[in-house]
Structure formats: C-alpha cells, structure tokens
Design a protein around this nucleic acid. Sequence first.
DNA 1: AATGAATGAGTTTTCATTCAT
DNA 2: TATGAATGAAAACTCATTCAT
Lengths: 187, 187, 187, 187
Amino acid sequence: MSDKRKAILDSALVLFTERGFHGTPTSLIASEAGVATGTLFHYFGTKENLIGELYLEIKREAGKIMREGTTGKDVLSDLKLVASNYVSWGIKNPEKIKFMEQFCLSPYVPDATRGEAISNFLFLAEIFEAGIESGEIKPLPVELAIKMSAEFLNGIIAYITGEGQGRDAEEIFDLAYPVLEDGLRTG
Amino acid sequence: MSDKRKAILDSALVLFTERGFHGTPTSLIASEAGVATGTLFHYFGTKENLIGELYLEIKREAGKIMREGTTGKDVLSDLKLVASNYVSWGIKNPEKIKFMEQFCLSPYVPDATRGEAISNFLFLAEIFEAGIESGEIKPLPVELAIKMSAEFLNGIIAYITGEGQGRDAEEIFDLAYPVLEDGLRTG
Amino acid sequence: MSDKRKAILDSALVLFTERGFHGTPTSLIASEAGVATGTLFHYFGTKENLIGELYLEIKREAGKIMREGTTGKDVLSDLKLVASNYVSWGIKNPEKIKFMEQFCLSPYVPDATRGEAISNFLFLAEIFEAGIESGEIKPLPVELAIKMSAEFLNGIIAYITGEGQGRDAEEIFDLAYPVLEDGLRTG
Amino acid sequence: MSDKRKAILDSALVLFTERGFHGTPTSLIASEAGVATGTLFHYFGTKENLIGELYLEIKREAGKIMREGTTGKDVLSDLKLVASNYVSWGIKNPEKIKFMEQFCLSPYVPDATRGEAISNFLFLAEIFEAGIESGEIKPLPVELAIKMSAEFLNGIIAYITGEGQGRDAEEIFDLAYPVLEDGLRTG
DNA sequence: AATGAATGAGTTTTCATTCAT
DNA sequence: TATGAATGAAAACTCATTCAT
C-alpha cells in the first residue's frame, strides 16, 4: 500500500475521532498527512469512501489481533485470551476504539461496509457456540452474548484509558475480567 | 417549556441520530419541527447549544427513570431494578440510546455539558459502594463497575432493538441480566 | 419578480454569452449582480437551473415580441412583420441572440427546458401553413421553412451587429428581407 | 500526422460537442482516445490550443469540401454545387456542424484562430461578387449574402439531421435550395 | 415572540497541468 | 515519445447565523 495512502488513513483516524466526520475538512486530513487535497481524492474518490476504508481496515486489524494465540481447544481460556488481546490492543490504540464506538452507529459509514466488516468477528460466534454446547457457558443467544461481552470490554478499556490512567492496566484487567467470566459461566 | 422549544428538541433528537450533528442542517430541524429557522436560534442561540441542551435533557431523563422505585435497602434488588428500568426505557426510546452512545464521545457536546450530566448518575456510585462495603459485590473500583455495567446493559438494549426484535424483551432481559449479577456478586 | 432575481438573470445573460457556461463562475454572476453567492442559490437552486430559467425567459420574450402587431389576415405581411420584429429586437439585444445561438445546441440547457420553450413559436407554424395552403408560399415542410427562415434572419442580425455596424439597420433589413420573401413565395 | 494526435482530435470533437469545452476534462479526451493525459499535453500544449487546432482542421476541411467541383464559369451552378457539397458533408458529419455552430461564437476559440479560419472561405466572396457584377444575383453586400446563405444552409442541415430524419436528404435539399436561389437571383 | 430572505465563509470535489520515470 | 501520479487553485454548493419586519 502506497505511503501516501497510509499517511492519509492515519491522519483521518485521528481527526475523525477528535472532530467527527463532518467536523473534519478533507483539506485538513490532507495537510496533516503531508499531501495535496487532490491526492486524497486520487486514492479514495470521496470522503465517504475514505471513512469506509478506514472502518474496514480497523475492523480487520481488531479481528486479527483478537484471534492471535487462540487454540480452539479450551473455550474459557480462548475467551480470556481474546478479551485480553482486545483490551491490550484497545489500550494501545485508543483512537481506534474511539473510532469504532463513534462510527459503528453513525450514519457516515455505509451499511454495506458495516456488513463487510462483520466477517472479521465470526470466529467469536464459534467460540461461544462451543462453550454453550459443552455446558461451560450459560445457554444464551450467541449474538446477545457477543454484544454484552464486547460492550463490557469496551467499558474496561474506557475505564483504563480514562479514570484508571496511571494504574497498571494488567492489574485492572485481572480485576475486571472475572466479572465477565463468572457471569458467563454456568452455575 | 414552550411547545415550539419542545418540537425543536424532538426533531433534533431524531435527525441528529439519523444524520449526525454536522449532517443535520438547522433549517431541516426547524422545518421538521414546523417552525422558522429564526425560531430555533431564538430559543437556543447556537446549534452547539441546542445539542447540549438535548444531551442534558436526555441524561436527566435517563437518571430519573433509572432511580424510580429504588429503596436503598437492598443493593442487589436495587441494582436489578435500576438495570431493568434502564433497559425498558432504552427499548422504548431507542433514538435516545443511540443519541447517548453517539454523542457521549463525540466532540459536538461541550465538555462542560458532559460534566454537568454526570450528576444524574451519582446515585449509582452510592449503590455500588454500599454493595462492596457489605461484601455482596466484588471489590472493584466503583467507576470501573459502573462503566462495565452500563456498557453491558447497552449491549442488551442493542441486541433487543437489533437482532432480538420480535422476541419478548422481558424474557431476554431475564436471560441476560443474571450474567451481570453473577459476575458482580462475590463468590 | 424580485429585484435580486432579475439582477442575477441580467448578469448571467451577459456573462454566459461572453464566457460560456462553465467559463462563468456562479460567484462572478453573483458579484456582478450585487448579491451574495448564497442568494443566487436561494433563487435558482443550481447553476443548471439558472441557465434553464434564463433560456425560457428569453425564448418567451422573443416569441412575444415577434407576434406583436400580426393580424392573421395576410400571410406575407404577417411574415414580414414577424421578421422585422425579430430583427429589431435582435439588434437591440445582441446578447440575447448570441445566448440563443450558443445555448440552443449546447448541452447545458436541459432537454425538457428546450421542449418547454418551443411553445412560444407555434404561431409560426400556423402562419406558414396558412401561406402554403393559400398557395402564396412554396409547398415546403413547415418545420423546414421555419428553420431556414429563422437561421436566415439570424444571419441578417449577425451581419448588422458585426460587419454592418454603422450602416442603417432598417436599410439593410429592406435589402436583405426580399431575399427570403422572394425565395419563399411561389414562382 | 501521428495516429495518437488524430485519435485525440477525434475524441475531442465528439466530447466537446456533447459536453461543451469546460464540461469535457482533458483526462476524458485522453482516455477516450486511448492515450495518457500527458500525451495530450505533449501534442497540444494546452486545452485551448487543442480546441483551436480542432477548429482550424474542421474549417479547413469544410472549405476544401465546398470548393470541390466548382468551375468558376457559371455563378449559379457553382453556388448550387457549393451548397450541395456543404449540406452533404454536414449531414455526414453532424458533430462537425454542431461543433462549428457551438464554437463559432464561443469564447473558447481564440480570436486569432477564428481569423485564420476565414481564409478558407474567401472563394465564396469571389463567387458572390462575380454573380452581383454579372447581374445574376441581387446587389447585396457580399458579407451579408454569405452570412444569410450560410445560416440558411445550416437551417437545412439542422432539419435533415433533426426532424427530417428518415426522409431522403437529396429530396429535401432539392425542395429547400430553390428558396435560396430564387431569393438571391435578380427579379 | 416569530419569521425567512439574505449572507459569505467554508466545504467537497474537479481538473489542467507538470514532471520524474 | 509516452506515461500517469501528484498537485493545488478554483468551482459549485451548503448552512449557521443575522436582522428587518
């Protein structure tokens, strides 16, 4: 991928989260990226397309990071690893978390793009299904379990990057994660 | 509160969640509310101020609704009631939930306003503190517990208003809430 | 019709003929008209719509002027009067002639608008039909006769406003018109 | 002349008449011609120069075609031949006619170029002068006679390529031309 | 209090042109 | 010769805000 394309995506990420989609002029994205405005449109065609590509890129990265190290053998330890991967990544990339939260629901990301992004998280459904089948996890609708868990982890990240700043992130995770695990586990 | 003021807030809520802040012209808010553009500025001064007032109004309502029926006597039952109140309200007012999620993090709501809104949720800290002190709830930083729980409930609402549409809301809540309760409860 | 609207149409006429459609920025039209850019869009919505309205206005005026004084009794004298009216008007309004010639064929005027404009010239067909029926005019397809005559008159106007400048317009018309009349008349 | 140069001129002719000068990007002309944008500028230097060269090319062709077969012996038959040549060529090359009509008056063709083009039509003045001198043609200012006649013929072409489509072109010409001839001829 | 015409700064996007390859 | 990525000035159009009524 071209250097300029990458620089544009980087600037866009920061500026969109700081100032919102319509609050960020394309001219500002371009100048922060050190390229001409025309170059932005050369690579992305429209501003909407730019945010769409950025959205996909981040979702792809998040999905990839979360899966790292999972074995498919033990549901609960896979789940903890996925959560830990996600929280670690989220703490290191707070703008990406902020971006996902702001633009998951926002109208600026085309629906088609949103749909395309889901594929990166299908493995989560498999983990939950396995856990429910084996009786380790409470029998919940899988989509519900995913939604609750994901939001729960976002809550942890928000706390660590917000009020909890300065305290040890791992320590907080070790304090917080059992709440989710104990909640999901059967009796 | 004047009828026109109310009509403007109502239109703004719907339009901001559907189209974003900068994506919604004041002229459109005004025309949907059945008033002249000038009237919007007569009541709210600026567009920023309008979204700020809307934000406060909704946070105030959310706080009030959540507290309804709590006794301060039993932590776990108060907590469940608060959760249930919030979820019921959220299902009935999905635009308000969407608005809060979109604009909690967004740069359009002035920070001062965000601060002002927090006062509506101080009672939550009291409940958690009491629970931790009595040993009923795991010893967690209170703000962490609040953040995780709030996000968790948003996950439930998102599921009910999204994929879970058509299924009985109360039934889903009864399935999902124990996950949070079991998680927060000590051993 | 509002003063500002009229001023915008007047500037647009001059500038479009001098510089072409895409060669004329809306900002220039507005400033020449002594209004803000926004005002132009307030009245006309789009630049395309502006040229469309201008086109209709001019065609309407041309049609009205040409008909003035016709009686419907004598074909050849009606025809001469129409021609004379048109040429006189054309000499006094050379930008309108230039505008019609440039934008009759140009892609900037929407086809629908072009169609709408034709209604102003239906009376010409009636005159020619009457003349052909009475035997005074050669039996030609009416549309052909109109096209040839119209272009012929444009040739006269072009000459008078171009090379023939300074010479008496009426004298030139009296020299030129018989060519058309003798040509159309039966043997 | 290089193949690429010719391809560029061909694309430009079609696109300029269809979309106007400023409505046609150089990048589009190049891509339709199957060459890179840079190549267009390699051959023509600027867009203005491109339209100028195209204008000259067409005027040159028109002049050459019109003269074909004239003898200089009989004014009226030469005139008819010129007219017939022009109309035949115009019917076969409607984009060239459209181009000339649109850009004769337009500001995009530099005045110098327009002047240069006139030389191709000087022979017309000679024919008319001869006709007037011999008394065969009404004593008119030569430029006026040329303008009227040229426009008249354009009217015929417009009719044939427009409303008269499907009918025999020659037949229409034979119907229409006598109008011009009878008009120009003395008594 | 309520209106909506008018404003003009600011936005996204286009496109003639250049230049390193 | 020929290319096409990169440029940035300039365009059409939008919209928060004002103000005379």
